[in-house]
Design a protein around this nucleic acid. Sequence first.
RNA 1: GGGGCUGUGGUGUAGUUUGGUUAUCAUGAGAGCUUUGGGAGCUUUCGACCCCCGUUCAAAUCGGGGCAGCCUCACCA
Length: 487
Amino acid sequence: MVSDEEFKITDFNEWFNDITQRAELADLRYNVKGIVVYRPWSTFTINKIFRLFEDTFDETGHEQVIMPLLIPEENFYKEAEHVEGFSPEVFWVTEHGSEKLEQRYALRPTSETAFYYMFSYWLESYRDLPLKTYQRANIFRYDTKQTRPFFRGREFYWFETHNLFETHDDSFAQAIQDMHITEDIVHLELGIPFIFFKRPEWDKFAGAEDTFAADTMLPDGKACQVATTHLLGQRFTKAFNVKYRDKDEETKIPYGTCYGPGITRIYGVLISVHGDNRGLRLPFEVAPVQIIIVPLYFSGEDNELLEKLCVDFASDLDKLGFRVKIDDNREKKPKERFSFYEMKGVPLRIEIGPKDLETSQVVLFRRDLNTKKTVSFTELFEEISKIANEFTDNLRSQADDSFESRLSTASTKEELRKELGKGKLVRIPFCSIDTDGKDCYAHLKAETEGAEIRGTRMDIEETPDADELCIICGNKAREYVYVAKSC
RNA sequence: GGGGCUGUGGUGUAGUUUGGUUAUCAUGAGAGCUUUGGGAGCUUUCGACCCCCGUUCAAAUCGGGGCAGCCUCACCA
């Protein structure tokens, strides 16, 4: 039998499609292409992720708002690059009843054109700055034929923050804060490793001056973008006539940023990065059920005592703040119940049978290490608290190791192709991520079966030596860029 | 947007080539009994040919169109 890691590399698609159905995460039977129903097991965790972001945004001084889903056509057309970038994938509302609307409405593919329209009313004085807002939203994009639950839907969920600042430097500081927010939640809380890249000129958000994006690696060796933060400069503020009176009584135009962590996609990455051959492994804090108690019945034994013990344990654990459930289904053999909760990603399992009553102990199974341990009644809660504390750390460090092992370097095209073939995120010396590097990018893409230049690292400074050359054109390499296929 | 494959109970499937009886098997769900330390057994009940149009005495089966899923190329913050 192949190892878990091998299984997911060779058959990641199959693994993902299968777990989506078996664990009842998303229901694909809804009859609109690219749009799925999120079932309770995934919805619970997705909501937890929503709350992690909401709590953090509240701490960082963002105010939550709820913007309309519909965006009038005239708003949408105000920023030229934005229109060009998004037009092909916009859903339009064109009718009411059997009548045609006088003006079409877009189902938001992103909400700059809703926020900035309102910002022009809301912003009056320098005293209003910085203006930091966010919303939790569903987004509609008719962007591809190849849809996939969680990763690429025609409707998906995200947060978008929209912020205004007096200076460009202030706006850049916000982008840096966005990167820290991403680190705190996506990496530390959810155990998903990533690198923030500055995207090349040709791969920026439509309407942005700079785009910084967090990429993680999926088990099949594809890079997957989980969050982006953009410097919008004054493009949208100018297009929407957003201005304020400064201290010096001059009318000035603020600088905008926006940040968009894709929540449904983060969930997809979460299950993909941590999952193994048995199924899901969910971080302790976001698991719908954290502890499952499985009583093992015996005929002729005193099952009443056993049941009472399970209920007592559950009640005590509940008081300690754990999400705990008892599976007292007598129709199912233990093996079936065990593997079911392992497949669902429940972090901890307590097995109690008649023998344990005599010895005052239980068997405790932990999903981060897939190991069992016998624990006495008296030490049980202490042991559970200990595992609860280190559970997500273990998932994270396993994911970090896997991510590290995917980083690679290449100094020739041949090496690059070889490393990409192994599913790596490959660093190469490259001439430029400005417009003048675009031809090299086109060549690189053509010669690597569609690999993408993800950009230059934001987390560390790294510059090629003076004599290093772009592996495509042979001119001086000004940057180290990272290359991978895209999910 | 292009190419390929597919669509049968809730799920997975047989049957489709060569049109013809009451549509196969497993799983699931409901009722009952027995079981339970890593995917139990028996009895019984429920439940399906993706949609529309066409060909035909007759369509799950053949033809056209639509919708949906999977794979792939292109596109894509």
